[in-house]
């Protein structure tokens, strides 16, 4: 293993830029569950800009979010889970992601491979490392642990067998009200057991069917959304005692528009080329209502969506306590 660390360039931070690239998820004034998948890599225009041209996205939060992931894993190693039979999938996932980064960020990332010997350099982290594909000891943290240090996205790897998909490996530090440690080893259908409506409507079964038929190299994406408070990324089940109470104390807080964030997940669904595993990349974007409201079309749409959302869906998303206040603030146009 050769790891070299050098000085890191400043990638800066620009709040307007993050709003321009925010993946605003609503196309109409109401929201219902659907199998909303589309091919990956297609740029989508929004009222503020656009997003979606890249599968692995680096923004101004790159270094802080990666540092945050490392700190979460240090406190709670169960956010990373793997299994011996997923080793090939983990290496496959690593090389796929590093390949995407090198292609899309050629000025800062470089990947070179000769047979199974791989050289990776990431100048954003001042990192340069040589490793051997398939040799877990050649890379700090092994393939999965290392993967989690190179991108902001959470990753979950699903194995396909016995006519089902199984969540058998991943690094998920920014879960929106679920737990990687609890769900690992479950089938895709079991993991989605608690989601209201989707089973009667056959949405989850259709999604699984769709994923099981993806051919190697095919990449799709979907968005999902919820609300969160204070820009907190880690709302895993494990840390509920730290953030659960905020859902109540925000209701009458005059700072509600700055505290309540729309949280959008861009999920990429990729059939990995060598192992045939399904890779889920989950990237979470947060913007406070006060920032979203600067885009009039978003303010209006989000106000409608929150106000109209059926109660069972609001309950499942954990936003029932404050969503009407949030909708009212947006609608008031302050």
């Amino acid at each position: 293993m050769t790891v070299t660390l050098t000085s890191v360039p400043d990638i800066g931070s620009d709040p307007a830029a993050s709003l321009r690239r925010f993946p605003f998820p609503f196309r109409t004034d109401t929201y219902r569950y659907s199998t909303n998948v589309e091919p990956a890599g297609k740029q989508l225009e929004t009222a503020a800009g656009g997003w979606g041209d890249l599968i692995v996205d680096i923004d101004a939060h790159y270094l802080p979010e990666i540092a945050q992931r490392a700190e979460i894993l240090r406190r709670d190693p169960t956010r990373q889970a793997g299994a011996a039979h997923m080793r090939a999938a983990e290496w496959d996932a690593l090389l796929y992601v590093l390949g995407q980064l090198a292609r899309d960020y050629p000025h800062t990332m470089r990947l070179e491979r000769s047979g199974r010997t791989v050289s990776w350099s990431n100048t954003l982290q001042g990192l340069s490392v040589d490793f051997t594909y398939g040799d877990d000891s050649s890379l700090p943290g092994g393939p999965l642990g290392f993967l989690g240090t190179q991108m902001q996205e959470d990753v979950a790897l699903l194995d396909q067998r016995e006519g089902a998909l199984w969540l058998d490996s991943g690094v998920v530090t920014f879960a929106a009200d679920w737990s990687m440690g609890f769900d690992v080893g479950m089938r895709f259908l079991e993991i989605h057991g608690p989601v209201p409506r989707v089973h009667q409507e056959g949405i989850i079964a259709r999604a699984q069917q769709f994923m099981m038929r993806l051919q190697p190299g095919e990449a799709y994406r979907r968005t999902n959304w919820t609300m969160g408070l204070d820009g907190r990324l880690d709302t895993s089940t494990e840390t509920y005692p730290e953030w659960g109470q905020d859902r109540t104390n925000v209701i009458h807080d005059p700072a509600l528009p700055d505290r309540v964030h729309l949280r959008v997940e861009v999920q990429h669904i990729i059939r990995l080329p060598h192992s045939g595993a399904i890779m889920f990349l989950i990237r979470s974007y947060l913007e406070p209502l006060s920032a979203l409201a600067s885009v009039p079309a978003w303010r209006e749409t989000l106000a409608h969506v929150l106000q109209e959302l059926p109660q069972d869906m609001a309950d499942y998303k954990g936003i029932s306590k404050y969503r009407m206040q949030a909708a009212a603030w947006l609608a008031s146009g302050q």
Binding site: H85, M86, A88, A89, D159, Q160, R161, Q215, P216, S275, G276
Partner: peptide, 9 residues
């Protein structure tokens, strides 16, 4: 195209 993959487990 993959249609005869090994079962990892």
């Amino acid at each position: 195209r993959s249609a005869f993959a090994p079962v990892t487990t």
